[in-house]
Amino acid sequence: MSEPAATLLQVDHLTMRFGGITAISDLSFAAKRGDITAIIGPNGAGKTTVFNCLTGFYQPTVGRLELTHETGKRFLLERMPDFRIARDAHVVRTFQNIRLFAGMSVLENLVVAQHIALTRASGYAVAGLLHLPVYRKAERRAVEKARYWLDRMGLTASADQPAGSLPYGSQRRLEIARAMCAGPVLLCLDEPAAGLNTRETNELSDLLRDIRREHGLSILLIEHDMALVMEISDHVVVLDHGACICHGPPAKVRADPAVISAYLGTPEDEAIALTRGRS
């Protein structure tokens, strides 16, 4: 085993029931290291639920979620509490309904995301309270990292404004920047293009490709914008009623009759976009 395992995330037999509702039934898929893996499906298919299971917000009814770091270290996510999944397994997510620290400044949002590193540097607040150089240096580094992501996302000008006062598109980008500041190995994006206009969506698509390349990142992407999905993903998993109906490279998924019929049951333009790709 000299090569690092190619599989970053292996989901096996994931099932999630809420009382009588089965939101996900026996779902298995894998995500390769360095890939952008998209999860698509009609509304209510269970995509967000998959994220919630992965990031520990839900405890799966059945299933095994295994994450392997490049070092070979393995994590069984279904056994870990949510904050440890982010802290130790470095799986960081964004939310379908943006969850920023709205009253805090944009920069603070990014500094809070580096909480773990900064807490250690502040000697659990002791070095920080004494204003020791160790802590000051660590804080400066955190601000520099935040500045990098602000520049990347074009948010530098509003760095000191409350995050809640940003326009919608900027809030989405800030949430991605915040996740990146937490140092993810696997970044899970829940509908990052929702509510963005075409220009913003194109920018997002470039951005995701770039940061994936530059930061050795793997991305799990839930998205309804089919053009975006087809353009940037390496692998697509299609969910319908909690089950995987098809998976493979975008070209294969696009042509699959099961996928088309699942989508034809829902908004028509989505199905058309799916068959045509980006117009």
């Binding site: 949510d82 960081v92 809070v112 909480h115 607040a125 920080g128």
Partner: peptide, 22 residues
């Protein structure tokens, strides 16, 4: 300090805090 910022972040959104490893 991180401690205080974590308090404020918790006040703003506990779920987001957890998703960032706090």
């Amino acid at each position: 300090l991180p401690t205080g910022r974590a308090w404020e972040a918790l006040r703003e959104d506990e779920i987001a805090c957890r998703s960032l490893g706090m």
